[in-house]
């Protein structure tokens, strides 16, 4: 089963760039200057890479958040990182600086992280639940501020903001991919470096502390690392929900292994899942569906199916 899944995933990744709105003649892909060559190398391949890396970051981020917060509902967006990015993007659009919106989105995500950790510094003891609640409060605050932004914006601006919140994997060339690749490597290197204390977090905070782990510091480092990578991802694609929530759960159900063994699989299969959803989004109708719609349409029923199966 696991082997089959891996094989199917690799096949999917290899085949994904060949499907899209335009059929590309395979013989022309190696001819520089041809239209097919341009579309394949400058649009399709970056598109698939973008989907893979963003899916990987969101999914691995979800797994880490769920362990750190002891909460199966946690996702990289729970702390308000995505809402921060969305709000700042809206501000950029209204201010007539749409070109700079990825920068604003990243700024919004990082600003949120800094606010959160600034508040957390006032907690006397390590209290992840309080941090989670602060994140939720921030999200609501941002959501309200976004409403104000909608209220103040023109029709055209509103449409732009709305499209951002739906998520999009449109990309041309490799600049963004390189940046996202660096963010992914950073996150993977971080969890690899901390994998032993991370394993201790799988017991209880107290037990981890008694084995010498600085639980508070470790939690903050992990949350900061995830938020940074997610900030980069969201600034390019907008908030793509659900991946961070369901992929870790699906993998736990399928693999039946502890979370520290699922770090790499969750990155890989998170990436595969988004590539798969993106394939559907690009090929189902005449126009591309927003990716966030597809992740939820595909993910939610499968997720519920797994929960029901587990219940039996």
């Amino acid at each position: 089963m696991k082997f089959l899944l891996l094989f199917a995933s690799l096949l999917l990744l290899a085949a994904a760039p060949f499907f899209g709105q335009v059929d590309l003649p395979i013989h022309a892909l190696g001819t520089p200057g041809s239209m097919a060559y341009q579309v394949f190398w400058q649009i399709r391949i970056p598109h698939v890479l973008l989907a893979f890396l963003v899916g990987g970051i969101l999914s691995l981020g979800g797994l880490i958040f769920q362990v750190v917060f002891r909460n199966p509902m946690s996702t990289p967006f729970t702390l308000g990182v995505a809402s921060g990015a969305t709000l700042f993007t809206a501000i950029a659009i209204i201010a007539g600086m749409s070109m700079l919106s990825p920068l604003f989105a990243f700024g919004g995500a990082m600003f949120t992280v800094l606010v959160l950790f600034g508040i957390a510094a006032h907690f006397r003891r390590h209290d992840p639940t309080a941090l989670l609640l602060v994140g939720i409060a921030l999200s609501f605050f941002y959501a309200a501020a976004l409403m104000v932004a909608f209220y103040l914006s023109t029709l055209q601006e509103s449409y732009e903001i709305l499209r951002f919140t739906m998520g999009s994997l449109d990309v041309v060339g490799y600049e963004n991919i390189t940046l996202l690749g660096i963010a992914s490597l950073f996150l993977l290197a971080l969890v690899h470096y901390y994998r032993t204390p991370f394993k201790a977090l799988l017991t209880s905070y107290e037990f981890a502390f008694l084995q010498g782990v600085n639980v508070k510091r470790l939690s903050y480092i992990l949350l900061f690392g995830v938020s940074l990578a997610v900030g980069v991802a969201v600034s390019m694609t907008g908030p793509i929900g659900f991946v961070g929530l369901i992929i870790p759960h699906i993998l736990t159900s399928l693999y039946r292994q502890s979370a520290e063994k699922l770090l790499l699989p969750s990155f890989f299969f998170g990436g595969v899942f988004l590539v798969f959803c993106d394939l559907i989004a690009r090929n189902l109708g005449n126009a591309d569906l927003p990716i966030g719609v597809v992740t939820s349409f595909v993910g939610a029923p499968f997720f519920i199916y797994l929960l029901l199966r587990r219940g039996k």
Binding site: T203, E206, T252, S258
Partner: peptide, 13 residues
Amino acid sequence: YLPPKLEVYDAFL
């Protein structure tokens, strides 16, 4: 310190 009960978050550890 050994608590009165073993607490483990992860279901498969």
